[in-house]
């Protein structure tokens, strides 16, 4: 499997990358980790005229927390996993990154690529929905901050313009009493998800769920937020009945399709089961457990 020919340019900085993309007449593609793009090119399903390599751009690989967690779009999954702040305070991100593809792919794959590729089977989209994240995009007209709810348009399509580059992911600081978890069912390591569920909860001092947000992987053409499930949880104590009701609602909001990873009906059950388990794990983490 050999990719078709293309022009290649190394971007010096973000402005350079934007300029290169703009000059490509819509034929340009950003090369970050390349772990989704290069296989597509080898199948010749993607034949970009120009690859703009942003791997040498400085300042896109940092993870900082001041007020909010800011993750550079070029942060590799393996680095996200190893980051002390993430490990200490955002275990849901560790859950997520560790089930992406396999360890070798994670050495190259970037968090920005995982989002910008907009594959509903990718794992970060659901987690970012649950985390109420925003993504920062820069283009010829400057920078804009896009709430994650508005980011995904369709399978492999986001609101990013062809000459816009995703530069950063912003995640609200984990509130007191907050906890989250991401669970994924896959047939084997490296396979796409059958389904995945990200759950974030904030527990109040009375042990009730003050806020909840749930994202679902492979539940439609894009990752989805299970808003009805969130509504059911809000204000309730996390008893079995409430969690079961929320999980059923999450499945009800999902529209998976039948494929090699199972019939749609089965996937709905998996979403329900994973939602229950993810909520329980999130609550446990929020209340000091693991």
């Amino acid at each position: 499997m050999i990719p078709a020919s293309f022009e290649y340019a190394v971007a010096r900085d973000v402005a350079d990358a934007i300029q290169l993309l703009g000059s490509s007449g819509g034929e340009g593609k950003v090369l970050a980790g390349g772990q989704s793009l290069i296989p597509l090119m080898k199948f010749r399903l993607a034949q970009p005229g120009l690859l703009v390599d942003i791997n040498r751009v400085k300042g896109l690989s940092d993870i900082r927390e001041n007020g909010e967690l800011r993750i550079g779009a070029l942060v590799r999954e393996a680095d996200l996993d190893m980051n002390a702040i993430v490990r200490e305070r955002y275990p849901i991100l560790v859950d997520t990154t560790r089930v992406i593809a396999d360890p070798l792919v994670r050495n190259m794959a970037t968090i920005g690529g995982n989002l910008a590729h907009a594959d509903p089977a990718n794992d970060h989209p659901a987690t970012m929905l649950a985390l109420r994240a925003s993504v920062v995009a820069r283009g010829p007209k400057g920078e804009r901050v896009i709430p994650i709810d508005e980011f995904f348009v369709d399978t492999f399509t986001t609101v990013l313009a062809p000459d816009e580059i995703l530069t950063e992911i912003r995640i609200p600081k984990r509130p007191a009493g907050g906890g989250g978890a991401y669970l994924k069912l896959e047939r084997k390591v490296g396979d796409f998800a059958i389904a995945g569920v990200a759950a974030m909860v904030v527990m109040d001092e009375k042990g009730r769920i003050a806020a909840a947000s749930i994202g679902v992987t492979n539940a439609g053409p894009t990752a989805i937020r299970a808003r009805k499930a969130e509504d059911i949880l809000r204000g309730q104590s996390p008893d079995d009945k409430t969690i079961a009701a929320a999980a059923a609602a999450a499945a009800g909001e999902s529209k998976p399709w039948s494929d090699l990873r199972g019939p749609a009906e089965y996937k709905l059950d998996v979403i329900r089961v994973l939602t229950q388990r993810a909520i329980r794990k999130a609550v446990a983490r929020a209340t000091g457990g693991k």
């Binding site: 190394v10 090369l31 390349g34 772990q35 290069i38 296989p39 360890p103 070798l104 050495n107 190259m108």
Partner: peptide
């Protein structure tokens, strides 16, 4: 120093 799958990296990236 990182283990990567060299069928999914372009040689130009190793410049």
């Amino acid at each position: 120093g990182r283990a990567v799958k060299s069928c999914t990296v372009f040689a130009v990236q190793a410049d």
